[in-house]
Design a protein around this nucleic acid. Structure first.
Length: 366
DNA sequence: AACTCGTGGCA
DNA sequence: TTGCCAAGAGT
């Protein structure tokens, strides 16, 4: 890792901000510095690309224009606003944060990163982003872009996958961030990281700060950032039961904890949870499904393999293979079932994850 | 500290 | 297909 002199730091600031003034992106959440707008955009942008976020952001602002509107919204509407974005706890935590603001902060945002971190769903990165952009506090906002950009500029060899590495980057950036324009600086780093200094095909030869990029000057750009890789997704087998009664679909709401919390799907049974031998036969599966519904939900279903190609869906850490079964529900008494019957016309009113969309598409290709 | 939590894009 | 990456936070 190299160190910059005060003169180099000053030159870097000037060059970066001049470029940002010329070529910084015009994004919907950059039209003002309202903390609510900055906050919503930052939460949406966590692990999510700008292009994906834009339409969600526009709709979210139309539906929930203020912290109060967000605090008062029914959860089903929140999840509908987030449907397809992923990491659904983000939006549930946003509502908790909105209520926290109204209850404990008199509806006024705290103005420092340290205080912002106390709010639900706001971690070190988002606190830095809001504090610097909305309140002009000279603090770093260390996201994936900042890790990548500064690791290359300064040839920082620390493993960014390790939690402790964040504090090293925060110290380094704290020395470089300009006190007069911290928000623009942090956003400029993000723009730089998504244009010239990208992860895969960087174009540093044309970067406004190429002369400051030590890794590029040394021809070692792709060696940075140093990052240990994550384990690959674990395969998990599921059975989806497309059950109908009275012309309606049997839909279930997932538990309030864990993956896809509170979203709606057809019943998804983990094959490993069914009472099956190692080398079970297709006919055994039908019986196992029937038994499962009887025991867990006191429901009589007669399932049958739809003979369709299994649906595959990969999450960050799980790779699902889902076999589709059709079913008829006899005399539906849903007292013990965590869900309800829904007409085809009403299906779209439920917040559903992408994997459910794939299941519908397999059953009824458009 | 390591693991959990979605989805889309890209080579 | 596979693997990795994209404005991370909670537990």
């Amino acid at each position: 890792m190299i160190e910059w002199s005060p003169a180099t730091i000053s030159a870097f600031q000037t060059t970066l901000l001049a470029w940002f003034d010329r070529e910084g992106r015009d994004l919907p959440w950059r039209h003002d510095h309202e903390p609510y707008h900055i906050w919503v955009s930052e939460i949406m942008l966590q692990q999510t690309q700008v292009q994906t976020v834009i339409p969600y952001y526009e709709r979210f602002m139309a539906w929930f224009p203020t912290v109060t509107a967000l605090a008062q919204a029914p959860e089903s509407q929140l999840l509908k606003a987030w449907e397809g974005l992923g990491y659904y706890s983000r939006v549930r935590n946003m509502q908790r944060c909105a209520r926290q603001l109204l209850a404990d902060y008199e509806g006024q945002w705290p103005k420092t990163a340290t205080e912002l971190t106390e709010l639900i769903g706001i971690g070190p990165y988002t606190a830095g982003a809001i504090a610097s952009i909305a309140f002009n506090e000279p603090v770093p906002a260390v996201d994936g872009n900042a890790f990548r950009v500064f690791s290359r500029l300064l040839e920082i060899d620390a493993d960014i996958a390790k939690p402790q590495t964040r504090s090293l980057f925060e110290k380094v950036i704290a020395r470089i961030i300009p006190k007069d324009r911290p928000g623009d600086f942090n956003q400029a780093i993000m723009d730089l990281g998504s244009s010239y200094m990208t992860a895969r095909n960087p174009d540093s030869a044309h970067s406004p700060v190429k002369d400051f990029n030590q890794a590029y000057l040394d021809g070692k750009e792709l060696d940075y950032p140093v990052k240990t890789k994550k384990p690959r997704p674990v395969p998990v087998d599921y059975v989806a039961v497309l059950a109908q009664a009275d012309g309606q679909w049997l839909m279930t709401q997932r538990p309030s904890n864990g993956m896809l919390a509170n979203l709606w799907t057809v019943p998804l049974l983990k094959v490993a949870d069914l009472d099956l031998a190692e080398d079970y036969l297709p006919a055994d599966l039908e019986l196992a499904i029937q038994t499962y519904f009887q025991q867990e939900y006191q429901l009589r279903v007669t399932g049958f393999d739809l003979g369709l190609k299994p649906v595959k869906h990969t999450f960050t850490h799980q790779k699902w293979t889902i076999q589709l079964f059709g079913a008829k529900v006899e005399q539906p008494d849903l007292a013990y079932f965590p869900g309800k019957l829904v007409s085809t016309a009403q299906l779209t009113t439920l917040p559903m994850p992408k994997v459910q969309e794939k299941i519908w598409d397999r059953y009824q290709p458009k």
